[in-house]
Design a protein around this nucleic acid. Structure first.
Lengths: 127, 127
DNA sequence: GTCTTTGCAAACCATTTGCATATTC
DNA sequence: GAATATGCAAATGGTTTGCAAAGAC
């Protein structure tokens, strides 16, 4: 069986995502993981992100044309993208009430939804 | 001034997007535009999509890691992505009430929102 | 006729893959 | 010790760019 071994690289990459306040781009994961593990190769980052995704331990999030990754198991949540600093945050509130099975005009059967809010993050709003 | 000339290529590409029921991927734009205009080059498609975007005549939409393009001027709307056939539709209903300026817990100032619904499109639900 | 746009081919750049070496169990 | 994972470098594939020829005005 492949993908089961515990390695320092996999641990570090999973940890990096685990402590982030929101989803991270591949380059960000790479940089942060290198702090803990110099010599880490970018190919390993891609391979590990793919592996963790297949295992359901992280999820890809596409936002503004970039693929970001976030740790799984955060329950239902959405994202906030700051128009000023560009950072993406995880929000634990949901502005939508859409029970699975709701049928939209035209006959669209809704099974899930995704919301992205854009605006100013607390830091940028304060500055 | 560059970007102002009317060419067959630009007209065709704009028309393709104008008559689509939802946003299209670059490859789809390319294929459909080639029906009207054999010999069209892919580079022209990319250049034109970029131009039309800068002119505000179309908008990019990122969905599941792909960048799609749709005609502008459709007013506030959202997207529905069919889990079965993969097609993306434009929905003219909005499940969210979020006046610009709403402040979310933590101090996030909301200026805009984007919603994507996932499920079965009318055709796939009927099949 | 001048300036812009196009198509082609080359250049780019992020992501993936092949392979020898290092690591896990 | 056998099998898996890593790092490097090469390959890939979508997007962009340089340039000579075609087209718009």
């Amino acid at each position: 069986m492949t993908g089961t071994r515990s390695t320092r690289q996999r641990d570090v990459i999973a940890q990096v995502l685990g402590r982030a306040p929101g989803p991270l781009a591949v380059a960000e994961v790479f940089e942060r993981a290198q702090d803990d593990l110099p010599g880490l190769g970018i190919a390993t980052v891609y391979r590990t992100l793919k592996l963790l995704t297949e295992q359901g331990r992280i999820h890809p999030v596409t936002l503004d044309g970039e693929t970001l990754y976030e740790a799984a198991g955060k329950g239902h949540h959405h994202h906030f993208s700051c128009n000023q600093c560009g950072r993406v945050f995880t929000l634990h509130t949901c502005p939508v009430t859409l029970p699975s099975g709701t049928v939209y005009p035209g006959g669209f059967v809704v099974e899930a939804h995704e919301v992205t809010l854009y605006g100013q993050c607390p830091e940028c709003a304060a500055g």
